[in-house]
Design a protein around this nucleic acid. Structure first.
Length: 636
RNA sequence: GCCGAUGUAGCACAGGGGUAGUGCAGCUGAUUCGUAAUCAGCAGGUCAGCGGUUCAAAUCCGCUCAUCGGCUCCA
């Protein structure tokens, strides 16, 4: 019998009989591997264990520990769920069900929506089908046969998908009488799906398009084993515990009100203090980097928005008002006033670059369904700047912004990822301008020495951009900073500067934010720090706690002194036990509690207790003030 | 905007066609106490808003508003 040679990842060659499968290969290496194997990779392409090997192939065995394993497990879990749904709801039509970053989902077309009780039933059915150890088998059909098969089954969505694929043949996976169109690969049997959990029900449009029919989506997750699943569920709990909406209420930072309007933040004293601290920080940092602080008006004439193109392209998101028969638009962006400042004088190349910075409050009419705490609101303040420079200066300016972003993220302890989005099909501006700007962004990205991704064709119609996504303590990504080149506005507003040769030239404009929106950034900060802000950011840095009423006069003295020294401090002089006051201060996540009893009064000191429960040595109030100031300087 | 769920005291929640309940917070009093909850008493609500059904609605129905989970992860 002839043999074939297979190369393994370690470089070794194995000889197997013709017709051998990935599974056979695993078995030939060892019984343990055969048992752990869930799929294979032939010449870099993922395949089933049942896939046949050909001579000279490079083959890798995928086990539960492999990187690709999770995706396969989840994809199979999504099929298992579809099978369970079909058994419980025979009329349901299946559509698509991929593995996603955090698990999987499957979309169904059903007449009545699923209930939480249905979810439990489906999950129980899945467990039953998994225990039945059904073989998951792959077969290939011609597209026309497959379309006929799915049409006969009443699965019109599947037929539509195959039709759109336009391939000669398609692959079908079958498990215990349930057949699904799928690229694969899959686990060899349903019993290999060992740890899964259905999480939520949601509506989702067929193919994500709101013109299409609304389907019922079930989200779930699956892992290689129970332990990992539990760890994931635990992380979900942790995220819930850190939810900024919950903490915002508990720490009395902000609120929303039906009477005021959806998506409009009401900042309470402590939240407003947090904002103020961030805003002061921003002004200082921008000042240090050669930005000029400017302020534009909240409303600008509608004609101006027409000229800028916002009226044409962004109108649905804007609020308008009319007074004395003159229309005004409430600003959704800050750029227009900045343009006007530039235009207020004749500019020389010697004046450039100009960097206008504004903590600009804007209003955008976001769709009702997308509002979400501080993370998606209708009124917010951006740390917005527009840099106007010569084409030659573009490169250095962008590098400067990326350095700025890096410095700021380090202070908050955020890691981040960067993406470059290039010219889309529908865009304006000439090729050389796009090339210049894209190269400037690219060279700045390379210069950072950090990894970045490129999204071809994902740029704005008016220019390429870099998006920065920060990663919080739970490894979630948040889009905050963005750097965009803009060819439209200098054109539309006919901006120019006088070049060394005396000619009028068009300046280049860069639009950028560092934190993005203060509101969103605070939301992210709350979750990142779980409400326990570092001392420099804490709206209340310390609280004076008295042991008995006898200590109140001295405590009041301490409070006044420290407040005078610029410490954000409160007092709790209520007739309550110390432990009661500590508990409350602790729940408010106040960094330092200054305990004052007989000893402190006698020595003229305070005993600071940090919120982790540890006491510092007793010290004079002014020493404490110096200590806080020192920490602040280091952003601790 | 669309699909589904939810809306009861400041907060967390229970209840449910026959004139609203618990805990915490609040107020009053007692207690004067050293590192995460002292005790007692009192007060607090047009049950999101509007309309309908009914002898009777917080409860059932409709609309509106708001909140929550989603609607970009493509066999």
């Amino acid at each position: 019998m002839p043999n074939i040679n297979i190369s393994l990842p370690d470089g070794s060659i194995r000889e197997l009989p013709v017709g051998a499968t990935v599974s056979d290969l695993a078995a030939s290496i060892g019984a343990g591997l055969a048992k752990a194997a869930i799929a294979g990779k032939i010449n870099g392409a993922l395949v089933d264990l049942s896939a046949q090997l050909s001579n000279g192939a490079n083959v890798e065995i995928i086990t539960e520990k492999s990187l690709e394993a999770l995706e396969i497990i989840r994809h199979s879990a999504s099929h298992l769920m579809a099978q369970a749904v079909k058994e419980l709801f025979p009329k349901a039509k299946v559509t698509i069900g991929p593995a996603i970053e955090s698990g999987f989902y499957y979309d169904f077309d059903v007449d009545t929506s699923f209930t939480p009780e249905d979810l439990e039933r489906i999950e129980a059915k899945m467990a039953e089908l998994a225990a039945a150890d059904l073989k998951i088998e792959r077969s290939e059909l011609s597209s026309s046969d497959a379309i006929k098969m799915f049409t006969d089954l009443g699965e019109s969505y599947k037929a539509e998908l195959i039709n759109d694929l336009g391939a000669e043949t398609v692959s079908i996976y079958t498990q215990g009488g349930f057949a699904d169109l799928c690229r694969g690969p899959h686990l060899p049997s349903t019993s290999r799906i060992k740890a899964f959990k259905l999480l939520s029900i949601a509506g989702a449009y067929w193919r994500g398009d709101e013109k299409n029919r609304m389907l019922q989506r079930i989200y779930g997750t699956a892992f290689a084993d129970k332990k990992e699943l539990d760890a994931y569920l635990h992380r979900l709990e942790e995220a819930k515990r850190r939810d900024h909406r919950k903490l915002g209420k508990e720490l009395d930072l902000f609120s929303f009100s039906d009477e005021v309007g959806a998506g409009l933040v009401i900042w309470h004293p402590k939240g407003a203090m947090l904002r103020t601290i961030l805003e002061d920080f921003e002004r200082r940092e921008h000042f240090k980097r050669g930005y000029d602080i400017v302020v534009g008006p909240q409303i600008l004439k509608t004609e101006l928005w027409q000229r800028s193109g916002h009226y044409e392209n962004y109108r649905e998101n804007m609020y308008f008002t009319e007074v004395d028969e003159q229309g005004y638009g409430i600003k959704p962006m800050n750029c227009l006033a900045h343009m006007m400042i530039y235009k207020s004088q004749l500019r020389s190349y010697r004046d450039l670059p100009l960097r206008y910075f504004e903590l600009g409050t804007v209003h955008r009419h976001e769709r009702a369904g997308v509002l979400h705490g501080l993370l998606r609101v209708r009124g917010f303040t951006q740390d917005d700047a527009h840099i106007l420079c010569t084409p030659d200066q573009l490169d250095a300016e962008i590098k400067g912004v990326l350095k700025f972003v890096n410095d700021v993220m380090a202070i908050f302890g955020f890691d981040y990822e960067m993406e470059l989005s290039t010219r889309p099909e529908k865009s304006i501006g000439d090729d050389s301008a796009w090339e210049l700007a894209t190269n400037a962004l690219l060279s700045a990205l390379k210069d950072t020495g950090r990894p970045y991704e490129i999204n071809e064709g994902d740029g704005a119609f008016y220019g390429p951009k870099i998006d920065i996504k920060l990663k919080d303590a739970l490894d979630r990504r948040w889009q905050c900073a963005t750097i965009q080149c803009d060819f439209t506005l200098p054109e539309r507003f006919d901006l120019h500067y006088i070049a060394p040769d005396g000619e009028k030239k068009r300046p280049v404009m860069v639009h950028r934010v560092i934190l993005g929106a203060i509101e969103r950034f605070i939301g992210v900060l709350i979750e990142h720090y779980a409400g326990s802000f570092p001392l420099w950011l804490s709206p209340v840095q310390a609280i004076v706690l008295t042991v008995t009423d006898n200590h109140i006069p001295y405590a009041q003295d301490v409070l006044a002194h420290l407040r005078g020294a610029g410490i954000r401090i409160q007092g709790d002089f209520r007739n309550e036990k110390l432990s009661f006051k500590i508990r409350e201060a602790q729940l408010q996540k106040i960094p330092y509690m200054l305990v004052i009893g007989d000893k402190e009064m006698e020595h003229g000191t305070v005993t600071p207790r940090y919120r982790d429960g540890k006491n510092l040595d007793p010290m004079k109030p002014l020493e404490f003030a110096e200590f806080v100031e020192n920490e602040r300087k280091q952003f601790k």
